[in-house]
Structure formats: structure tokens, C-alpha cells
Design a protein around this nucleic acid. Structure first.
Lengths: 190, 190
DNA sequence: ACTTAAATCTAGCATCGCTAGATTGTCAAC
DNA sequence: GTTGACAATCTAGCGATGCTAGATTTAAGT
């Protein structure tokens, strides 16, 4: 009886449609506009159906965030030029990271700012999160003794640059200069 | 006729009570619990009175944020040990900054994360914001050619460390190690 | 065709930010 | 003093929100 299989397939498909709708609305109108009612309308079901897929609104944000990690990791790896020196590799990743943050602000927000229920740096951390972390670690590793801590620091620096600029705390015009400084700092033994 | 003066005094006092209540509720239960209704109850007036003081809820967050800047700047300046070397001064400020972020999370959130209507790095930026920025600039200045950009970068690094740790993205246990790296990076010519 | 269980919806609760319009209080002119 | 005008304040409500209990429809198995 393929009935249950079909049902499961339809269910999974509907879940994807919810996530896609959430992402689209968030990118278009901001996360405040992503309401359960609107999502329900978008997928043409009533609100309670969403709660059969996600425990609450935060979990929907979390699902979008996971998608984001699934894209950020590969994007960071792909950003490194083929014959880049170790220092250039850091620059490529830093630049790509910020590009991601500014070109997909809603996605970035889901991944790093909004409550999403995701668990980081824990034993049950999803693989995509580890992979993204690994993409950053790969480029700082040549320059440091303890890659994990240095990666955390590198990541924090990039996240700070992204967030302060996104909130208008620092001058957008000087992003390149700031990246240059960060890269210069991480591209020496430490 | 001191009548109008008295009224203005009472009005100003009431405004301070609103801000104090908002800050207290935010620190105790988080910003999500700071509702206009609850604030009204706290100051023993009806909701509409709050809108005679602040344009909207965000403006209340902004007022609390301003208070926060009024404290962060002096705290950063005071954190530098009397006979600290330039490098030690950076360490002191970095440590004090993170201490502030973790001991007053709600205040920090108002200042740097929540929409607050405050304008940074603009011509009409309030003096307290400039002062806080200046406190950080003072310690990185000895090591750099363009202090403004380096300060923005330094600040971003600290903000990233604070935010990622606050959200459980990086391991709290290694905060000291990360600070050591950041300090080491900014405490050399760049 | 009928029963039962799963899938889905309707309708509602409590809460939110915010505001129009009524009501109270206070001042100044007569 | 009384009264009229204006400022201060409140009541009551609108349109949203996240979430859920209970009714209803749909579909499956016999």
C-alpha cells in the first residue's frame, strides 16, 4: 500500500512549501511580516495545519535558518579562488561571508539573530552547522595553533561587522577597509 | 507662576519612571515582556499617557539604550588600569565591554540589537554615543593610522563575540581565549 | 454501504501596539 | 465665586498576533 508513502510525500512537500513561503515573505517584507496566518494563506491551508509541521513560529524560523546554513557553507568553500594563497583564502571567505549577510539579510537574521531553537557547539548540532563552521576553520587553520578557538574569533569578528553595519552603527562605505584589517590580523600566526 | 515649571518637572519625572520601569522589566523578564500595558500599570497611568512621552514602543527602547550608552562609555574609560600599557589598556576595555554585555544583557540588547530609532555615525548622533565610541578609540589609537576605521573594526569584533556567545553559537568557556586573540591582534601596528 | 480514524477547519482566547472620543480636572477671565 | 475653555487623563475599542479546543469533513478498511 503506497498510500502512506504518498501521504508522507505530500506532507514533506507541504513542509517545504511552508519553509519556502516563510523565506520568501521574510526576504520580501521582513520577518515581522511572516505570520502564521499569512503562511497558512500562502500554502492554502488553515493555521492549525502549520502546527502539525512545526512546534511554533520559532521552529519555522529555525527551518529557514537550516536552509541558510546549507547554502552558506558551500558558498564559503566555493569563494576561495583556485590558486589562492592562505592569506587570500581568508580574504575570500571574509568577503563572501559579508556578501551573504548583506544580500540575504532575512536569511542571515534567521541564522544568527532571531530565536530559532537551533543548538550550536553542542553534541547534537546539525551537520550543516558543523560544515559551515568547518568552511571557516579551513582558511584560518594554517595560521593558528588552536583552530576551533580562532575560528570562533574569526566568525565573531565577521558577525560583528555584519551586524553593526546592518544596524547602521558603522559606516557602510568603509566595509572594505575593515575587512582588510580583519584579514590582515588573522593571516599571521596566532 | 511656577505652575508650568512644576508640571514640566512632574512630566520629566514620569518619563524617567517609564524608562526605569522598562529597564527593570527588560532585565528581569526580557524585552518581550516589556509591553505598553505593563509599563502603564507600573507607573500607575493608562496606556495613552505613554504615547504623550514616546512616539511608540521602539522609542522607549531607544531611551533605555541611551541610558545604557551613558553608562558604557564611562565604564570603559574607568576600566583602564592606572599604569596600564597601551596593550593592557586594550585588554581592559575589551574585557569591560564583554562584562557589560553579559551582566546587562537587556540593556545591551536595547543598545545594539533591537530597533530603537537611534542614529549612529551620523551628524545628529547623540553625544553619549560619540563618547562611548571615543572610549574605544582612545585605546586602539596608539596602534593605528586611521583610528575611526580601526575602532569600528575593534567594536565589531567585540560585538560579534558578545552576540555569538549570548546566542550560544560559540563556547562560553573559551571567552578569555578569544579576548586574548582579539587583544593580541589590535595591540600591534595596523 | 458503514464504521472508524485521520485530516482539516471554524471559531475563539488572550495578548499585543496604538488611538478616537468621552470624561475629568484645572486654570483664567469675568 | 461662577463659568467657560483648555489641558490632562481615561475608557473602550480596532485590527493584529500566536496558538488551540472542539466540531466537521474526508478518506480508509471492512
Amino acid at each position: 500500500m503506497g498510500i502512506n508513502e504518498r501521504k508522507e510525500r505530500e506532507r514533506a512537500e507541504r513542509e517545504l512549501r511552508i519553509i519556502a513561503a516563510a523565506r520568501m515573505l521574510a526576504e520580501r517584507d521582513g520577518w515581522a511580516s511572516v505570520t502564521v496566518r499569512r503562511l497558512a494563506q500562502e500554502i492554502e491551508y488553515s493555521q492549525p495545519v502549520l502546527y502539525a509541521h512545526f512546534e511554533n513560529r520559532d521552529a519555522i524560523v529555525g527551518a529557514v535558518a537550516l536552509e541558510g546554513f546549507g547554502e552558506l557553507g558551500p558558498m564559503l568553500r566555493a569563494s576561495v579562488r583556485r590558486d589562492a594563497s592562505p592569506a587570500e583564502a581568508i580574504e575570500d571567505v571574509a568577503t563572501a561571508y559579508l556578501e551573504f549577510a548583506f544580500e540575504r539579510p532575512a536569511l542571515y537574521e534567521a541564522m544568527f539573530v532571531l530565536p530559532s531553537g537551533l543548538r550550536f557547539a553542542k553534541s547534537d548540532t546539525p551537520q550543516v552547522l558543523r560544515d559551515t563552521f568547518g568552511a571557516m576553520m579551513a582558511v584560518v587553520e594554517p595560521f593558528c595553533a588552536d583552530p576551533e578557538i580562532t575560528t570562533e574569533t574569526f566568525w565573531a569578528a565577521l558577525h560583528g561587522l555584519a551586524e553593526l553595519e546592518r544596524h547602521g552603527r558603522i559606516r557602510a562605505a568603509f566595509r572594505g577597509e575593515r575587512v582588510k584589517r580583519i584579514v590582515g590580523m588573522f593571516a599571521i600566526a596566532n
